[in-house]
Simulated assay, not measured.
Amino acid sequence: MTFVTKLTFQSGDRAVLDDVVDDLKSLIERKGAECKGPHSAPPEEFSVPQYRSLVPGDQFKSWDYTVYSRRLEIHGNDHIAGRVGHMDFPSSVHVEIEIEQKKPLGQGRN
C-alpha cells in the first residue's frame, strides 16, 4: 500500500510562504521522494470590521487582509512524510497535513 501525504500551507505573507514551500520541495526531492506541486489556489480576501466600543455603528475602518495557499503532495515515502510532520514552520504559516492510503489497482476491498 502506498501513502499520499497532502500538505496545505496558508499565510498572509506570500514571500515567507513561498520560501517555506520551495525549501520543503527541495528537501523532499533531495531525499528521493516523489513530490507533486506546489499548487496555488487563488488568494482569499478577507475584511474584518473593527469597533471603537460595544455600541453598534461606532467603528474604525475594516481590517482587510489576504491569505495565500499552496499545496504539496508526497507520494510513497512514509519516512520523509513523517519527518515533515515534525518540522517547525514559521508562526506566520499555517500547515495542515492529511494522509491518504492508496491501494494498488486491481486490489479489492477488505
Rank of each mutant, 00 (worst) to 15 (best):
E73F: 07
S62I: 01
S26M: 04
A33H: 03
E96Y: 14
P56E: 15
G32T: 12
S11H: 04
K102E: 15
L17Y: 01
I99K: 11
E34I: 14
V55D: 12
S91W: 03
P56H: 06
H94M: 07
P42N: 14
V48S: 06
E34H: 13
Q59L: 13
D78P: 00
P90H: 13
A33G: 09
Q107P: 00
F60Q: 04
Q10V: 05
F3T: 10
L72H: 09
K31T: 11
V67Q: 03
M87Q: 10
P90C: 14
K102W: 15
P49I: 08
Q50F: 06
E98K: 08
P42C: 10
Y51N: 14
R83Y: 10
K103I: 14
V93F: 06
I74G: 03
M1A: 08
K102Y: 15
V21H: 02
R71W: 12
E34V: 12
R14W: 00
F89H: 12
W63E: 08
K25M: 09
V95D: 02
S53M: 12
T66F: 02
E96H: 15
M87W: 09
D18E: 14
M87T: 07
L54V: 11
R52T: 12
L7R: 02
D64W: 00
D23A: 07
D19W: 01
G12K: 11
F3V: 08
V21N: 00
G108I: 11
R14Y: 11
T2V: 08
V55L: 09
I80D: 05
G85E: 07
L17T: 03
H79I: 06
K36F: 13
K25D: 00
A81D: 08
S91Y: 08
P38S: 06
V95Y: 04
V84M: 11
L17Q: 01
D18T: 06
V55W: 02
L27N: 01
V93Y: 07
R83Q: 11
D23R: 13
K6M: 10
R30M: 12
H86T: 14
S47C: 12
R30K: 15
G82Y: 03
Y51T: 12
T2P: 03
D13K: 03
Q107I: 15
N77P: 01
H75N: 11
S11A: 13
C35F: 03
I97V: 14
T5M: 02
R52L: 11
S40F: 07
I99E: 11
S69H: 08
T66R: 10
H79E: 07
E100A: 10
E96F: 14
H79C: 01
G12P: 01
G32I: 13
S53T: 10
I74N: 10
Y51M: 11
V67K: 07
K31H: 07
D22M: 06
K36W: 09
V67S: 05
S62W: 01
V84C: 09
L72V: 09
R70I: 01
G85S: 07
L54E: 08
I99P: 00
H39Q: 09
T66D: 02
Q50M: 09
V21E: 01
S40D: 13
G82N: 15
F3H: 08
T5E: 03
Q50T: 07
D64T: 02
S69C: 04
L105H: 04
S11I: 09
G76K: 13
S26Y: 05
L72Q: 08
S40L: 11
P43G: 10
D23G: 04
E96Q: 15
Y51K: 14
E73N: 02
